[in-house]
Design a binder for these strands. Structure first.
Length: 206
DNA sequence: CACCAGGCAAGTA
DNA sequence: TACTTGCATGGT
């Protein structure tokens, strides 16, 4: 994938804080829509922990409306902001001072932060080596007969982390490439799809 | 018009 | 424990 597609420069956010916000807004949502919500926050000049917490829940919800599930995500975002404010001085980059699994467990206690959101924040915002599993990872693994699509999240995460040394740039690029390739695959639920070209892999055939 | 997108938690049996 | 449902917008 790397040879065929080259470096990905991910996650698409300007700061660790924006990455953490994006991780919540992108839940089960097209990145384009999450991105519109981020732009609204930027335009209002409130892209910061204290600034966002100062908004009423209703105002915040309206601001992130394009991301979908906007009332739900406003509550989830506030819960994450309160955690960051209390535990990391409002900057998720400071979570890097914690041992990985300790930081992960604390993040998972936040209402609305599940394993994928936690791992995205840990890897892309805090720079800790936590491998991210998402719908694209499942699609690729199952399409190539490497794992059932419904394997438990933790099992798939361990599969990658047992096979690879803890390496932030490696995990970062690996997941980015998985998204780029996975989004080129069709969405069939059948385990195999002979329609999908392996072209994104270049001359690599699995 | 139907279907989908980088999840998660709460409810039910 | 295992399965189902609610949440919602914008693009194709």
């Amino acid at each position: 994938m790397s040879r065929a597609l080259g470096p990905s420069r991910w996650w698409p956010a300007k700061t660790p804080f924006e990455t953490a916000v994006g991780a919540v807004l992108a839940q089960n949502t097209n990145w384009g829509n999450a991105s519109l919500a981020i732009a609204n926050i930027e335009r209002a000049g409130v892209m910061g922990c204290a600034e966002l917490l100062a908004l009423s829940p209703e105002t915040l919800a309206e601001m992130i409306r394009p991301a979908g599930y906007f009332r739900l995500k406003a509550a989830r975002l506030r819960a994450l902001l309160e955690f960051l404010d209390a535990e990391s001085g409002g900057d998720p980059a400071n979570l890097a001072a914690w041992p990985l699994e300790a930081a992960r467990e604390r993040l998972l206690e936040v209402r609305g932060v599940g394993p994928e959101t936690a791992d995205s924040i840990l890897l892309y915002a805090a720079g800790l080596p936590s491998f991210v599993i998402d719908a694209y990872t499942r699609r690729i693994l199952s399409r190539h007969g490497l794992a059932p699509a419904d394997s438990p999240y933790e099992e798939l995460r361990e599969f990658f982390m047992d096979a690879l040394e803890p390496d932030v740039p490696l995990y970062n690029e690996f997941h980015a490439l998985i998204v780029r390739v996975g989004s080129a695959y069709c969405k069939t639920k059948s385990p195999a799809c002979t329609e999908c070209p392996l072209e994104p892999f270049g001359d690599i055939h699995l």
